[in-house]
Amino acid sequence: MTAIADRILNIPFVRRSDALRTFVVAAWLGWQIESNWADPFLFAIYSLARPIASVLILVVMYAVITDGAMEQPIFSYIYLGNALYILVSSVITGVSWAVIDDREHYRTMKQLYTAPLDGYAYLMGRGVARMLIGTISVLITIGFGLIAFHLPIRLATIDWGLLLLSTALGVASLAAMGLMLGSLTMMLARHFWAVGEMVAGSLYLFSGAIFPLEVLPPWLRPLGFVFPVTYWLEAARRALLGPQALGFPTLAHFSDWQLVGILSGMTAVLIVVSGFFYRWALHQAKEKGLIDMETAY
């Protein structure tokens, strides 16, 4: 990882940009913290066991009730939704945990914010490590589903364009949301650990990740349509499963490109808002003397 980071840093346009240099170094640092400082064997098990176990909970729940009818479209819906959701929680909580780590654990906030770095790019970079781990977990979980439960995904029939485009937009929207939560964390003295988890938990419940939105009571359903994750999960499922995914009423009246359009709009708004929110939160944290606060909470 160090060699890769070195190479990227030596690219002329990266070397010239403060933001890009900060981003690359922060991503390298995040990776060192997440992986190299733990026993590699334990780290590998930890990265695989949690996602596999969480999807197996749903598999067993499903199998107990349906007597193992894994060929039903609802099974693929639940399985893929849960697998893709790993990325949601990794990216969203990744940035806020970077703030908590730097402030409470490593106590380096003072040094970081007195250094000539781009804070926005730094936090984005710190989130990359968790995103990479999340991506690996998603791929392994889907691979496991293909082998163990014969998920109806065929490489030849995957709509790669829709998958890559929607995933890029989905991850960008998640990163912007994560950055806003990280910014909020800078101003909190208590319960900062719960901020990311709470938003991730809400998305799990309201974005139709593991059950179609129609299962929710009618007064709760509109909440699902507010989050970009709902559109990303729907688009990714359609791209991976093909016509089978369209069997569900959730968002069925939207075409693939309408989904991408809505997702693009939401992502653009979130990125702009996150930039302003970060600046405002940083200013507030500095004004109130919270930036290097160590609460040991």
Binding site: M61, I74, I210, F211
Partner: peptide, 13 residues
């Protein structure tokens, strides 16, 4: 929220 999510999974099936 996680408990409620699992309840809705059972409802869905």
């Amino acid at each position: 929220m996680s408990t409620v999510s699992y309840v809705f999974v059972y409802r869905a099936i």
